[in-house]
């Protein structure tokens, strides 16, 4: 106790107390924060559509309706949108990237760990595509197989990307904000098939880029450019999140001016001492 009371006016005491407080709050949060429960996987041996129906009735129908017609609310409009004519591509995108089922009712479904495994996603897609009317099918590998894309095609993809995609998704594909709590998500680590599905189906705020507008070949080129941008070595060092001048300004103030002020204090502290006569 004596050590505590003698050191409580130490210049670093406040910092220490703050650190302890932060650690305690962080520890409590991680201990008490809610987590998702693990779900049992449905039997994969059943017939695709029948199995998909089972999954749909349990996991989707409460918002999208028993017949996929969607559920309307008198006050706030749609509770869940209609799934009529959305096709297998939309289901594979929304469920395969974990966007559906939504964790909470928010402006936009975020990408997260998928709730259903691949087989279940396939069953759901088959069910929606056969029962709720035809729609875009899951695109084939010609949309995203970039194994033998030439350099010129990458450049062409880059020009398409700059014209059509960067306005929302940012020049290096890290995403950007849209109005009303919506946003263009980051494109980092997006699988080719999901990339193609998003372009075809136009999920959430995204417009549809049909094959008549951008051919499958050009879609593949865009994906190749995206892949090139995201896999090329970070020339010039640590990219500071790739968010541009905001991150750079923060680094300039915190790391740059911050460290220089520390140096200035250090130099200012070390004075020549006046000798006593």
């Amino acid at each position: 106790m004596r050590a505590l009371s003698t050191h409580r006016r130490h210049p670093l005491a406040g910092v220490l107390v703050l650190l302890l407080g932060l650690v305690a709050v962080g520890g409590l949060y991680s201990a008490l924060a809610p987590r998702t429960a693990q779900a049992d996987s449905a039997g994969a041996d059943a017939e695709l559509v029948a199995a998909g129906r089972e999954l749909y009735l349990v996991g989707c129908a409460s918002c999208h309706g028993l017949n996929g017609q969607g559920i309307l609310q008198s006050k706030s409009g749609q509770y869940g949108p209609s799934l009529i004519g959305v096709g297998a591509a939309a289901v594979d995108f929304q469920v395969g990237t974990g966007r559906m089922p939504m964790a909470s009712n928010s402006q936009q479904a975020p990408r997260k760990e998928p709730f259903y495994d691949d087989a279940e996603t396939e069953q759901l897609a088959a069910f929606v595509a056969t029962e709720f009317g035809p729609g875009p099918a899951i695109p084939g590998s010609e949309y995203y197989d970039i194994a033998d894309v030439s350099e010129e095609e990458v450049t062409r993809g880059g020009e398409f990307f700059l014209t059509n995609c960067t306005a929302c998704h940012n020049a290096v594909g890290i995403g950007g904000a849209l109005g009303g709590g919506r946003y263009a998500p980051s494109l980092e680590g997006v699988e080719g098939v999901h990339f193609a599905e998003a372009m075809i189906t136009g999920p959430q705020s995204m417009p549809v880029f049909s094959d008549a507008v951008i051919s499958p070949e050009d879609k593949r080129n865009i994906y190749a450019y995206l892949n090139e941008v995201q896999t090329q070595p970070a020339s010039g060092g640590f990219a500071l999140g790739g968010v541009g001048p905001v991150g750079e300004g923060l680094a300039g103030w915190v790391a740059g001016i911050g460290s220089l002020v520390v140096f200035a204090v250090w130099i200012g502290k070390h004075s020549v001492r006046a000798r006593k006569p």
């Binding site: 700059l162 020049a171 020339s235 905001v246």
Partner: peptide, 25 residues
């Protein structure tokens, strides 16, 4: 630290823009 990676933004064209366009601080 990388600053202003001009190659990532591409050449200027008045019809294009990128999300996260900011001036320096």
């Amino acid at each position: 630290f990388q600053i202003n990676p001009v190659w990532a933004f591409g050449p200027y064209d008045p019809s294009k823009v990128t999300a996260g366009s900011q001036p320096d601080w």
